[in-house]
Design a protein around this nucleic acid. Sequence first.
DNA 1: TTGGGCACTTACCAAAAGGTGCATACTTGT
DNA 2: ACAAGTATGCACCTTTTGGTAAGTGCCCAA
Lengths: 140, 140
Amino acid sequence: MSDTISPPAQASPPVPSCTPTLPGFTCGLDATLRVVAGKWKPLILYFLAQGGPTRYGDLRRAVRDVSDKMLIQQLKELEADGLVKRTDYKEVPPRVDYSLTSLGHSLAQALVPLCSWGTEHMAEVSRVFAERDAWNTKRR
Amino acid sequence: MSDTISPPAQASPPVPSCTPTLPGFTCGLDATLRVVAGKWKPLILYFLAQGGPTRYGDLRRAVRDVSDKMLIQQLKELEADGLVKRTDYKEVPPRVDYSLTSLGHSLAQALVPLCSWGTEHMAEVSRVFAERDAWNTKRR
DNA sequence: TTGGGCACTTACCAAAAGGTGCATACTTGT
DNA sequence: ACAAGTATGCACCTTTTGGTAAGTGCCCAA
């Protein structure tokens, strides 16, 4: 047919196709993204993946810049999505801790390459963002 | 997975720590997320990773449900971030196509595990979302 | 001559996401 | 007595995000 079959002009292996399996999701990637969408979710997940069960206050201090409202909200969603487990010790000064479920753990694993990518290419990303921000602030 | 070396509650510690390397980013994961944030970006990236250079109209039709405004906007950002390359053929009926840069390709690779995760756990995710949506629509 | 496709651009709006700050009920430390 | 810490809840508000609809300039087909 067409002569345009100059194979992988790019050395990298082809990305496997993302087949739509269930209604409501265009593909697996889509499904994943809905679950990790949220400013702090991946960071929470990743943080929990590194340590064991973590108390709310510790989490709060670890994920700096997060507000109570946001942290609680995202934790609740993660819990509802079956990614984290909340343990309430019903004690007098409240004591609660959060840990990953096995599902949460598996997701955290899947995040590793993203994290690596970011680490490897952080310089480029940083530069690009600096430019964009500079341009934005100049314009505004 | 790691074999059963799980004496403590902390089972598998294969998640490497995400070290803050540059100012402005808490970690590599953070950096990555800023670049792929956006409702359509991962899908665009993933789609471009599967085929070669793609014309705007084709992309538009492929990523169904995306509006012109959104597609253009996200493409522009991806281009500004050095992930996609835009080629304008300056022809009479406009002809433009988009392809991934090597940086874009590497990011697409990093997305593969996320895609797989979603595919593998789509049933769980789907169920959880159905519940949540049902609950929301009842409440509203 | 009208209509459609191409690759956008713009103006306007609704919804969602996220932030601030106060309140709770109880305890411990000063 | 009072402040501070604990883990949240809630009301209010701003910012960000995404969607709709229209328009642009050009060409080709009917």
